[in-house]
C-alpha cells in the first residue's frame, strides 16, 4: 500500500527519503488501524504536527542560523513553529544546534527529561550528528544520539535555513504518522517516583 504524507508546504514526491517514511508506516500499521480511533489519531496528529514549538536552545554556530530561520526572511512561523519557548516544559521539540561537549551532555539530557511528552529531537549540523570537525576532541560528544534519541538529522555546517526548514517539515511528517491511541507511547511505563 502506498502511503502519502503530504504537507501543505511540500508534496510527498518532493521529499527525498520517502522509503524511510514508507518503512515507518509499515511498522506502525502492522497491528492494523482501528477506523474510529484512526480518525481521532489523524486529528490529533494534525494538531501536533502543525504546532511544534521549539525550545530556544543553541550551543554554537547553528544557533545563529536557527535564529535566522525565525527571522523575517525565512520565518518559520508560517509552518506553525511560531512560539519558541524558553522553558523546556512548554516546548515540543529541541533543536540541538551546535556541538555538545562532555560538560553539556548531562545538561542536555536533563533538558530533554524536563520536556513534556510528546517531545522530539532534531540534531542540527555536523557537530550534533557526529561531533563534526571536532570529532577527535577529548571533550566532544560524538553525536547527540549517544545521550538522547534523535528524530531528524539535519546535516550541514551550519545547515542553511532552508535545510533547517526541510528538516523541520520532515519532523512534521513523522509526527503525522504517530498513533496516539494504542501506539508506541503506551508501551513505556512511568518509572516509580521516589518520594
Amino acid at each position: 500500500m502506498e502511503v502519502k504524507v503530504d504537507l501543505k508546504s511540500m508534496k510527498h514526491e518532493n521529499f527525498k527519503d520517502n522509503e524511510y517514511i514508507e518503512q515507518l508506516v509499515k511498522e506502525l500499521r502492522e497491528g492494523g488501524t482501528n477506523v474510529v480511533v484512526g480518525v481521532l489519531d489523524d486529528v490529533i496528529n494534525w494538531g501536533r504536527s502543525n504546532s511544534l514549538w521549539p525550545l530556544t536552545f543553541a550551543t554554537s554556530c547553528c544557533g545563529i542560523e536557527f535564529m535566522s530561520v525565525g527571522a523575517a526572511s525565512n520565518d518559520m512561523a508560517r509552518f506553525g513553529f511560531e512560539v519558541t519557548r524558553a522553558s523546556p516544559r512548554q516546548a515540543d521539540f529541541i533543536m540541538v544546534a551546535g556541538t555538545i561537549v562532555h560538560k553539556m551532555a548531562p545538561v542536555l539530557k536533563r533538558l530533554y527529561d524536563q520536556m513534556a511528552s510528546p517531545k522530539y529531537v532534531i540534531a542540527v549540523g555536523g557537530c550534533a550528528i557526529s561531533g563534526g570537525p571536532f570529532k577527535n576532541s577529548y571533550h566532544v560528544v560524538k553525536g547527540v544520539n549517544e545521550i538522547i534519541p534523535v528524530d531528524v538529522y539535519i546535516p550541514g555546517c551550519p545547515p542553511r535555513p532552508e535545510a533547517m526548514l526541510y528538516g523541520m517539515m520532515q519532523l512534521q511528517r513523522k509526527v503525522k504518522l504517530e498513533r496516539f491511541f494504542g501506539g508506541v507511547n503506551k508501551k513505556e511505563k512511568r518509572p516509580e517516583q521516589d518520594k
Binding site: V43, I44, G47, R48, S51, D75, F180
Partner: peptide, 24 residues
C-alpha cells in the same frame, strides 16, 4: 514576516492546532 499561513486558509486554523496539541 508572513506569520502562520500553512495551517488552514491564511493560517486560520493555527490556534486550533495549537489548542489540540496543548490539550493532549
Amino acid at each position: 514576516r508572513y506569520g502562520p499561513n500553512r495551517v488552514g486558509p491564511l493560517g486560520l486554523m493555527q490556534p486550533i492546532a495549537d489548542m489540540f496539541k496543548m490539550l493532549i
